[in-house]
């Protein structure tokens, strides 16, 4: 494994609700790790006997093989009363962790991959939207993203034009803010926390903080799982498996602006674990 700036970042390694003293074996960037609770019930993550940094947030246990220089990113909506928190559960994907994030940021695929759920023909045009790097937090943000959707959320009763915001606060995490039908003015929060097992293998942990008092937890989980499993069939069949930082063998368009901005941000930071440096 090459030493890379990504070694000092926080990564999800398990669910808080599944912590036990027996422990769960998993991996982080090629290294086997163990995730368990200690005698006091606190999360403990070890690699070959060495204790790793750990924090617990958003229903997940987070750890690092290096030394994170700052706290895990904040999601203020997670502290709002009335929200329901949904641990969707892990899905293993045979692709680069960076590919999983790139796909999550993409909307032009909604009518084709999530047909009649998040989009449908002929409503395929992607209107221009705004992307910026917010320098203070050093995060990628896409705003004013609009897309017409037949059934945008469990809580939506018909087709609406949904507005989105996308945020990348860490190299393998993305937060999506989506207009919330039962609470106009508020945003539903859907996240993808991606655990890099290897450069071409990852465990994806989706998590949500929603305003929805109607749907059952099972339905909420099922809805998100259905969508993610559709994405997985894309992710496992993209060439190359690693995320290209040089688009010489691709044709990104203006609709791909979030993907381009994400790749620029990775490139500038030297975040190359899971990246393809030379176009092939």
């Amino acid at each position: 494994m090459t030493q890379d700036a990504m070694i000092d970042e926080w990564y999800p390694v398990g669910l808080v609700s599944q912590l036990d003293s027996f422990g769960r074996k998993t991996a982080l960037m090629g290294e086997p790790i163990d995730v368990a609770s200690d005698a006091d019930g606190n999360a403990r993550v070890t690699a070959n006997g060495r204790t790793l940094p750990v924090c617990v947030r958003y229903g997940h246990v987070w750890s690092s093989l290096g030394q994170p220089q700052k706290e895990l990113f904040a999601i203020p909506e997670a502290d709002q009363p009335g929200r329901r928190f949904v641990d969707v559960g892990v899905v293993r994907v045979r692709c680069s962790p960076l590919r999983a994030v790139e796909n999550f940021l993409d909307i032009a695929h909604f009518p084709f991959v999530h047909t009649d759920i998040l989009g449908s023909e002929p409503h395929t045009e992607v209107q221009n939207y705004k992307v910026e790097i917010r320098e203070d937090a050093d995060e990628v943000w896409a705003t004013q993203v609009k897309f017409y959707q037949p059934q945008a959320a469990r809580s939506a009763s018909g087709g609406i034009t949904t507005e989105y915001m996308y945020r990348v606060p860490a190299p393998t995490c993305s937060v999506l803010y989506k207009t919330c039908p039962p609470r106009p003015g508020e945003w539903d929060v859907i996240t993808l926390f991606v655990q890099p097992l290897a450069e071409d293998l990852c465990d994806v942990w989706p998590w949500m903080a929603l305003f929805d008092d109607e749907s059952s937890m099972t339905d909420l989980i099922h809805f998100q799982q259905t969508i993610f499993l559709q994405d997985r069939s894309i992710l496992e069949n993209q060439i190359p498996r690693l995320l290209p930082l040089d688009p010489g063998m691709e044709i990104p368009t203006r609709a791909d602006l979030t993907s381009v901005a994400y790749r620029r941000w990775l490139k500038r930071h030297g975040y190359t674990y899971g990246a393809q440096l030379v176009a092939q």
């Binding site: 930082l245 040089d246 691709e250 990104p252 602006l257």
Partner: peptide, 8 residues
């Protein structure tokens, strides 16, 4: 879009 990335 392509040029905003370019070669590595």
């Amino acid at each position: 879009m392509g040029c905003s990335l370019g070669p590595i």
